[in-house]
Design a protein around this nucleic acid. Structure first.
Lengths: 299, 299
DNA sequence: ACGCGGCCATAGAAAACGCCTATAGCTAAG
DNA sequence: CTTAGCTATAGGCGTTTTCTATGGCCGCGT
């Protein structure tokens, strides 16, 4: 059964006239006649009674009518749903994000996204990069923004380089000095956060590579607390730039560059399952938004 | 868009595998692949992501899925509705009937019909033959059982000959006489019913044609009352045979033949609009039942 | 009365389409 | 390194669909 036949049936049923219906459907009248005949043959029942002044539904036709309408409506709605999905004018987007991304970068991005696609439902799931990767592999999220990591089933798009910066409380002795060396840092009390996070390892590796054993004085499980500790002068910390941008601007924390140490940073990427084909709909829309903005800057 | 494509989409979505789905649909794998491609091309969006181990729905495919299911279900249900209508195993039948038919003939017929087609909804509208004809022309009823009348837009099928019989109360002098002539009848008090009914004209014409002026003593608007009047010995009446069959059998009324007068009767037919094509479904079922039974006898 | 116009059905030819078999291309697993 | 299991592609064939042109029917208006 062709949908064109069903559509022709409906059109003729509405107009009671094959010729007009054919015209409206941009086919010739014999074509439409043939479609109707084919449909009637397939259904084994005349759908129309042919009269002098046109086509009139038979009882069978009347019985079939609502189903034909339902079928056409379903197809029409399906097309619309696809169009919506394509333009991302509606749909659902499930993101995963590492905590630092989720807290300091995502809000501004999602604000822009929600403004552009108000009818899209957005969900965010947070976790350490490795956990978020698992969510992606289990298809619990469609995209994830995490630190760069590799896995055969995923592809990554670089987002930004997240620098770890040394922050000290305002008025700290480092703040006035023109030169702060790694040795100076090692003599300070250090505040770390979240031993289970990749930041911890990264920071540790940083000091160890320089032959410095950091004096760990405190370990917190979230960045926000770490910032508070620094502000209370309990130590200094190496924190993601995006996480302290606000405090630096408000001058409630001060950034210090270490002259004799390389910049430490980690790459933040957005990852996606390879087996999902080309990104489409809300996913594509979000990726475009990422491409068009500097995620580290919008925050 | 071909329904076969939608069906293929659903089958592949379910199985995640073109080859198996093709097998299940009794087509070759390339055929099904082509259908999917055509559908994706028409919708302008890949519905599946091709992976090493088969076909996986894309987000777009997932969005389209429920609509595809809905469309297929609508078509399937439509077919079923037609099949039901054809076998008259379900549906609706709206009948019109003249009062005498409705009261004395239809009940037995409908009892049989309802037994054969228990899921068919039956509605009966009653009125004088001319009114019922109008209902039919306005398509308020699908069939009507009335006295024979003609109209260019209807076709009639003869049902039975309804004889008008002279009935007298038990013990009436006529009941014992071997011969009752029209002159005898004229001397009796006569009971008529319903001046607006065709029976009235018919009965009047009968007497007039014989040069007899009936002594009308009473006119009622329904047959049932007329029978009661005769039983109470208020007169004698010429009534439809089908309407008095019960009383004759129970001997609460007695039939008398008039020797010197022709039998008077009228044809009862079932009528139908000409422009409705071949009867189908419940209508055909009822017509078959009429053809297979003697309506005057079943009562 | 008679032609005209509007209706659906039919005929025949050209084009398009769908289906098949066979095969290629790819990847994962043995 | 082959094999097995996917889907995609190619080419040929048969059917279907579509078109134009025409037929037949009936009602309407001149």
């Amino acid at each position: 059964m062709l949908l064109a036949q069903v559509e022709g049936f409906l059109e003729v049923a509405r107009r009671g006239n094959v010729s007009r219906a054919a015209e409206a459907m941009f086919v010739t009248q014999p074509t439409l006649t043939a479609r109707l005949h084919a449909l009637e043959r397939e259904l084994g029942e005349p759908l129309f009674a042919r009269t002098r002044r046109g086509m009139k539904l038979t009882d069978a036709g009347r019985a079939f009518l609502p189903y034909a309408e339902r079928a056409m409506r379903a197809v029409r709605d399906g097309r619309q749903a696809l169009a919506d999905a394509r333009s991302a004018s509606a749909g659902r987007l499930v993101l995963g994000a590492a905590p630092a991304v989720s807290t300091y970068v995502l809000p501004a991005l999602l604000q822009r996204f929600a403004g552009a696609y108000p009818r899209v439902e957005v969900a965010v799931r947070t976790g350490h990069s490795e956990d978020v990767l698992q969510m992606l592999l289990r298809e619990e999220v469609q995209l994830a923004m995490v630190r760069a990591l590799r896995h055969p089933d995923i592809e990554s798009i670089p987002l930004y380089e997240e620098a770890l910066v040394l922050v000290v409380p305002p008025g700290h002795s480092f703040a006035e000095r023109s030169k702060v060396g790694i040795a100076d840092v090692a003599s300070e009390r250090l505040i770390f956060f979240d031993r289970t996070s990749s930041y911890y390892e990264l920071t540790q590796a940083f000091f160890l590579s320089l032959g410095v054993t950091p004096r760990e004085v405190m370990e917190l499980d979230n960045i926000e607390s770490a910032k508070k500790m620094v502000q209370r002068r309990l130590g200094i910390a190496l924190l993601p730039r995006t996480a302290v941008a606000g405090e630096l601007a408000a001058k409630t924390l001060t950034q210090v560059s270490v002259t004799d140490a390389p910049a430490v940073s980690q790459k933040i990427v957005v990852i996606r399952r390879r087996d999902q084909g080309r990104p489409s709909g809300t996913v594509a829309a979000f990726l475009n938004l990422l491409r068009d903005s500097d995620p580290a800057a919008v925050a």
